[in-house]
Design a protein around this nucleic acid. Sequence first.
DNA 1: ATAACGCGGACTGTATTGATCCCCGTTACG
DNA 2: CGTAACGGGGATCAATACAGTCCGCGTTAT
Lengths: 176, 176
Amino acid sequence: MAHITVSVEYAIHCLLWLAISDDRALSSRDLAEFQGISPTFLAKILPKLEKAGIVGAHEGVRGGYRLARPASQISFLQIVDAIEGEKPLFDCQEVRRRCALYGDCPPKWASGGVCAIHAVMLQAEKAMRASLALQSLGDIAMRFNRIAPAKFFDEIDEWVDERMAIRTGRSGKPEA
Amino acid sequence: MAHITVSVEYAIHCLLWLAISDDRALSSRDLAEFQGISPTFLAKILPKLEKAGIVGAHEGVRGGYRLARPASQISFLQIVDAIEGEKPLFDCQEVRRRCALYGDCPPKWASGGVCAIHAVMLQAEKAMRASLALQSLGDIAMRFNRIAPAKFFDEIDEWVDERMAIRTGRSGKPEA
DNA sequence: ATAACGCGGACTGTATTGATCCCCGTTACG
DNA sequence: CGTAACGGGGATCAATACAGTCCGCGTTAT
């Protein structure tokens, strides 16, 4: 369990596939099966991206998710915040106010402003967030486009087509 | 519960007091009571600082801890690593290899090198660590010396003296 | 010899994370 | 129109990590 959780990892991978499969709505089940991750768990993650305005959701049959804006305008920081809700790197307990010499009410020079230790942590968090803000989903998508062979994108299209045919063409029984 | 835990917070506050009370060995119990934190929990934290070479421990009666080197040579990053053991900001699950199209063995263009998403997180972690490495315990100690009134340092000395008298002068019963 | 120390292991309780299940409202398609 | 595929949200559960406690051991001044 790390500070940036697997929920964020799943979210970014999903967004990457949405960025690559141009403007076709993919359902949470498709995204899960395509990547070998838990469908029910992914179904808890994608609504967070929708509420943050990163993806658009379409309900009902043939519904699914699309990017709400170009991948180049979606930063990693926005994704992390959408999933984890700006959880702080450090949770200051204000130990400085508990010094035995103060008794119950610490003097103002010891309790005013931001704790110096907290300030250091906030600066580190700021550096981390700035780094995440610099990278966009589009950057990663471009990198993927460079290294993946052209044939692979055709395979993706085929897989998605097959998926949609199974879901709606026949009813209920996939590949039985 | 944040990425940088309260153990780190306790550790830094203790180190700050050690830096201020010049070269007098303070016991873990003294440090705990002085700051209003759990003595038993603090007793689990200080040995980590000792194994990391940040403080020196002196066993036996009248024992305690001292800084192992000048406060200006102790960075926040060293303290965090000493307590948390270089725990990563992000734990990559290598989702990229699980794509349904690959079957059991993903192609080398998809599994080689570092995952692009992981690389972004590593860069953010590097930025955070660089920020923590820039700040030293000495910086905070100097800031504290500026804002705390001169009288306060005398009070600290008195408190420590009284403590040591109680522990060794009489036996067992503090202020009874 | 005693009692204050540091050190380490075993243990407990609680919060978070990862994950599952169920039910509801919505929507396309037959 | 009815059915079944969708998204959305709540209840629940297991595993893990964190915060904190307890006990016993070896060491060392007095």
